[in-house]
Design a protein around this nucleic acid. Structure first.
Lengths: 325, 325
DNA sequence: GTGAAAGCGCTAACAG
DNA sequence: CTGTTAGCGCTTTCAC
């Protein structure tokens, strides 16, 4: 119509292979002046895959995932991909439904943090139909997939050792529900550090559960009224840290403290909060890189990449043991 | 083939209007056993619109937007919509490109926080082709669109008044670049409260700019070495608050302080930080509601909804004036 | 190097 | 209430 060509346009839009330079130029100009935009629906209907990455995270409002999202977006954008995001709220059923919605939209490339108890059946069938899935933050034990996560065991062990080095022998541990992979690993790391120091693990000093489902005041009271109460706390995640710090303030009680996960303003509290910091940006970067490797056809066996966490000393972990009130 | 029907399936999948109950049942069963899933591409190609909401925000890692995203997702999910998210990083050119990518994917329903200086041309042309756009956090001055935002002027005025009530007469103001809508409104609110109290606005106490582009130490030094230095600070946003609190700690200086936007752990600082809290969840809820009203055909004139911010007293804003060191 | 024709899976319009 | 026909805009053969 306009110029002279018909569907050579397609070839041009897709990189101009097998098109003469002059035709290419002519078409390019026409596209420019007419404001033509390729319809992604039609393209994707034909090609059976979308230039969209599905991002399924446990919680969109968690700054950890926020940072990850931003990194993933930056890299995806460079390759012309956009992000379809969704949250699982740790619900395996919701996760599976979301994966199905992704599939219905042709989103065959997914980065996800899988809740425990997720049905591996659907995941396997997605993979069988050519989907690419990269796991972040936690693996799926029954399934070997590309995975990027922090070395939780190691981080918790080093954090606990840090407290041990400052003389603590009674260290309380707070963590998420045992079913949550990271919670289990961190607890194992904590226990391993204790055992290595020749200290028996005391179940009376361990509290596992979703932070909001636990009566923190009561648990702390119980811990503190033990014959041999804890002099330090290892907090297994951010939400626990916030809750514990709040509660400790209320009962006018300060203890040595190390938490997993960094948080903003941790250095402005008194004392500054010592943490094992993860690197969500790096996790995102590696995950999206591994995903594009797959998209571009990599056939190597799945890899699990563990990132080291960093001990950030700010004061709260360096409080020595001291006599009790 | 399988049962007996052909494309009655379409009617069934779309809610079963004009289908006999028994056929409906038969088809539903078949769908179930065969694991049939409607191909959204084909559907969307035909209908020329996606069951996807485009969410264009200035910063994905900002907890403010994180909370908003979560709310929007919850409501969107109930209507079968998913979220295509992207960030503008305050860049008007990037925003326009993103809008174009949305359009190419048939995403005609968009919630966005528009950066200043955005080209209204493309927005108008999107609207002309039937797109629905709801603005959050800030309006586009030249364009009347459905908008949900906090009453920034009022919030800043009330926050400033709070400081005035505690005896402060010299109040410093820190805010984002003047081009950012919220920054301007908040500054106007601050000035209005001063004027109402019969206090002249002193430009020497006002610092506007992107927090990272400003040498905070130097600015604070300058402010504090004035003949008549400030005894209180009003911080125009969260990033400024963090930077200011950090810097004030370093120079061992505490001042009365009120900040716009709440942040986690604000109550654990000493003193607790008094803030004007916005309600990102409510902003998200209203925005997505307004969007669905449009999708469902509402033809009412565009509305701008202003939400009131809440003064949360935690100590830092209740420090009275006191003699200088 | 370019064009013509077919078809991706679905729904709108119109019959029956 | 249900079936038929056509076509959304693109890419993929396969000719030329």
């Amino acid at each position: 119509m306009t110029g002279v060509t018909v569907k050579t346009v397609s070839r041009v839009v897709n990189g101009g292979a097998r098109v003469s330079p002059e035709t290419f130029q002519k078409v390019t100009d026409a596209i420019e002046t007419l404001g033509f935009r390729r319809n992604e629906f039609a393209r994707q209907l034909r090609q059976r895959t979308a230039t969209t990455i599905g991002l399924l995270l446990t919680d969109l409002s968690d700054p950890f995932f926020g940072t990850m999202m931003r990194t993933v977006e930056d890299i995806a954008l460079q390759k012309g991909y956009m992000l379809l995001v969704a949250s699982s709220a740790e619900d395996p059923v919701r996760s599976v439904k979301t994966l199905a919605s992704f599939a219905a939209r042709g989103v065959t490339n997914v980065i996800m943090s899988a809740p425990s108890g997720i049905d591996t059946g659907i995941i396997k069938s997605e993979l069988a139909t050519g989907s690419n899935i990269v796991l972040v933050d936690r693996p799926i034990p029954e399934l070997l997939l590309d995975t990027v996560l922090t070395d939780n065991f190691d981080g918790a062990a080093r954090g606990t050792k840090h407290l041990l080095q400052h003389g603590h022998r009674r260290i309380a541990f707070f963590g998420d529900e045992p079913a949550v992979y990271t919670a289990g690993e961190r607890r194992r790391g904590y226990e391993s550090a204790l055992l290595e120091a020749g200290i028996a693990v005391d179940p009376e000093l361990i509290c596992m559960g979703a932070p909001l489902s636990v009566d923190v005041h009561k648990v702390l009271d119980t811990f503190l009224s033990l014959a041999d109460p804890p002099t330090a706390i290892f907090s297994g995640n951010n939400r626990w840290s916030v809750l514990l710090l709040r509660t400790l303030t209320e009962v006018h009680r300060s203890m040595a403290f190390v938490g997993f996960d960094d948080f903003e303003l941790a250095e402005l509290l008194v004392p500054g909060r010592t943490v094992m910091a993860q690197d969500p940006a790096e996790i995102g970067r590696m995950a999206v890189q591994m995903l594009f490797d797959r998209i571009e056809g990599a056939r190597t066996p799945p890899r699990i990449v563990q990132l080291r966490s960093e001990l950030v000393s700010r004061g709260s972990g360096e409080i020595g043991t001291r006599p009790l009130d």
